[in-house]
């Protein structure tokens, strides 16, 4: 796991990514806390905290005695939330760095177009 950020957040994010890219489908079962702990070699309590965060925000739901499942509509919800975060997480620093190097918005746009083609 990455340094500097709580592991439970990273666990939650990894599960979210799997839902976004379709590895985990809606109404599909999510790996158990213990499986996650063994896979990432982390403390099971920490893995549980990450899973519970997703239960709390409605991304996952619990079936008594069976396990955790992806909520219907979770993927669309995650995508819209990630889109909001995208600007702040990637566009803002991109613009800041471009400004520092004297790249004007038109040039930046051109760069994005060229790189997008590849």
């Amino acid at each position: 796991m990455e340094e500097g950020r709580p592991i439970f957040q990273q666990v939650a994010e990894l599960l979210e990514n799997s839902i976004l890219d379709g590895t985990l489908v809606e109404e599909g079962q999510v790996p158990s806390t213990n499986e996650l702990a063994a896979f990432h070699r982390i403390n099971p309590a920490t893995a549980a905290k990450g899973v519970n965060q997703l239960v709390d925000d409605g991304t996952l739901y619990k079936k008594r005695g069976i396990g955790m499942f992806v909520s219907p509509g979770a993927r669309a919800k995650l995508r819209s939330r990630r889109r909001d975060e995208f600007a702040r997480q990637y566009v803002q620093p991109l613009l800041a760095e471009a400004r520092k190097l004297g790249i004007d918005p038109a040039e930046l746009k051109h760069m994005i177009d060229t790189w997008g083609e590849n």
């Binding site: 213990n34 702990a37 063994a38 070699r41 982390i42 403390n43 099971p44």
Partner: peptide
């Protein structure tokens, strides 16, 4: 050691 510890601790 770490793996067995974690697995057994989980159970």
């Amino acid at each position: 050691f770490y793996e067995r510890l974690l697995a057994d601790y989980t159970e």
